[in-house]
Design a protein around this nucleic acid. Structure first.
Length: 475
DNA sequence: TGAAATGTTGGGGCG
DNA sequence: ACGCCCCAACATTTC
């Protein structure tokens, strides 16, 4: 009995392992694996530059593991599928669900089209531990606070499914009329990615290796070590998870195999709860699709953000004159990533000390991060700004000097990304403007020439922020 | 997943 | 021996 061809449409699931849709498609005589670059439907959420670099390499890796038979397209997905249905004996189309509002809309439309054509189709969950629509408060409304969402909502719900190991592909069908990875034009004209290339290994193999390394070397001391950007205690799985090179279920259950290691429990729980934050972001995005551009708390709608191109540019380039902030921004620029501690510090600085709209930060991160993820990025920025769900309170303003002293006391991280300060003694590393003349001289630094003067005064900008943010409280 | 301001305590110096 | 002051260390409150 012939079952014909089934399409598996790769999207944010660029892996073979634990891929429910691919497994389903592989039950047919032949599977036609496709990837479609969809710049048409994504509109204002078009993938950023760093993500494109990542995607290029991730697709190459995926293509290799499919014996170079990944069919790739740079067109409107509906047209692609339409043409494939016309050309080949396609019996079914499968995919794993995405949660960006524009993708949901698009997929609904394509599903209706397939239903209409009487083509079997089905979507699967291979991206989240808990579907957003399965978790709600007793009164049926969505949670707005992380802790009860995770502890009561998720941990009391059905356990995440175990990773599936059932993939058996007989025949891969390749569409010779498709585009090539190169014609997607994902790589930039100028090579700004050499450093990124050194640091990351996109693809399924790189993802599993990263997880292995984290579980061996980072997890045990995760709870403490995750705060220190020079330590190797964070997982750095975010881009791999974003592109679905490894499933969150794999990460969840592989981490749990370490449960028996003595003294690991607190770190393990904390790590699992960080996966919970990822879930919470997707949950919020699903239930509040305006999250990426609209304040979650409407009382922020009349917040007097200040437009200041010059401040914004200083922040983007890592030239604010605050070494810990500049280190974070330069890490982002050079590596396509920023340690979580620094994301909070630079976010607080932009939004509270510079009073610049969180959406400016969101846009910059979107373009620069290899892990740029609509759910995590929006939820994260709204958290920092205080406008989000379970957000940082308005009065929580990070002091970049204190944060530096606390979390990079020896300056390893800061000096790595702000090397012009490497001769400065630690005592003045985070506040060079307060260093005595002769110390600056000895370190070979002239402020305003070799390294910027601070673009704002900490104390004064803090007072301005407290005043401005305090007013949101009145509503 | 802060920081600064304010309050409290207790030890040591000193008349 | 005693009270007083100073101030660091810690705790609490406020923004």
């Amino acid at each position: 009995m012939s079952k014909g061809i089934a399409i598996h449409w790769f999207r944010q699931d660029l892996r073979l392992t634990d891929n429910l849709s691919l497994e389903k498609a592989a039950e047919f005589d032949a599977v036609l694996p496709i990837y479609i670059l969809d710049d048409e439907n994504s509109q204002e959420f078009k993938m950023g530059s760093a993500s494109r670099w990542w995607l290029h390499h991730s697709l190459q890796s995926l293509n290799e593991s499919l014996d170079s038979k990944l069919s790739i397209y740079n067109q409107n997905p509906k047209n692609v599928i339409k043409k494939l249905l016309e050309k080949y004996d396609v019996k079914a189309v499968f995919w794993n669900r995405c949660y960006e509002p524009w993708r949901i809309d698009r997929d609904i439309d394509i599903k209706a089209y397939l239903d209409d054509k009487k083509i079997e189709n089905k979507s699967f969950n291979s991206h989240l531990l808990w579907e957003p629509w399965n978790i709600s408060k007793d009164d049926g409304t969505p949670y707005r606070v992380f802790t009860p969402y995770f502890k009561k909502g998720c941990l009391n719900a059905e356990e995440p499914r175990l990773p599936s190991k059932n993939l058996k592909i007989d025949t891969i069908f390749y569409d010779h009329d498709c585009d090539q990875i190169e014609t997607l034009d994902l790589l930039p004209r100028i090579n700004w990615y050499s450093k990124i290339q050194e640091v990351w290994k996109p693809g399924e193999d790189g993802a599993q290796k990263r997880l292995d390394q984290f579980l061996e070397e980072g997890l045990l001391d995760y709870k403490e070590g995750r705060n220190f950007p020079f330590k190797e205690n964070v997982s750095r799985l975010s881009p791999h998870l974003h592109f679905g090179e490894i499933s969150s279920n794999e990460v969840w259950y592989q981490a749990k195999t370490k449960e028996s290691v003595s003294g690991i429990q607190k770190s393990l729980d904390h790590f699992l709860s960080e996966l919970g934050w990822r879930e919470f972001s997707y949950y919020l995005l699903y239930h509040f699709p305006s999250l990426p551009k609209q304040n979650f708390q409407p009382k922020f709608n009349k917040f007097p953000w200040i437009k200041n191109e010059s401040f914004l540019e200083s922040w983007q380039k890592g030239e604010t004159g605050y070494p810990i902030v500049d280190a974070g921004m330069r890490e982002l620029w050079q590596t396509g990533y920023m340690h979580n501690r620094l994301r909070m510090v630079v976010g607080s600085f932009l939004v509270k000390n510079l009073l610049i709209d969180w959406r400016e930060g969101e846009d910059w991160f979107w373009d620069c991060l290899v892990d740029a993820d609509l759910a995590s990025n929006s939820a994260g920025w709204q958290w920092v700004a205080g406008s989000g769900a379970d957000a940082a309170p308005y009065f929580r303003i990070f002091n970049p000097v204190t944060q530096g002293l606390k979390f990079d006391p020896e300056g390893e991280y800061t000096k790595k990304y702000v090397p012009e300060l490497k001769l400065l003694p630690n005592k003045f590393l985070f506040n060079p403007w307060e260093a005595p003349k002769e110390i600056l001289e000895r370190a070979g630094i002239e402020l305003g020439k070799d390294y910027p003067e601070p673009i704002v005064d900490l104390k004064y900008s803090r007072e301005l922020a407290l005043e401005a943010f305090g007013k949101t409280k009145l509503e």
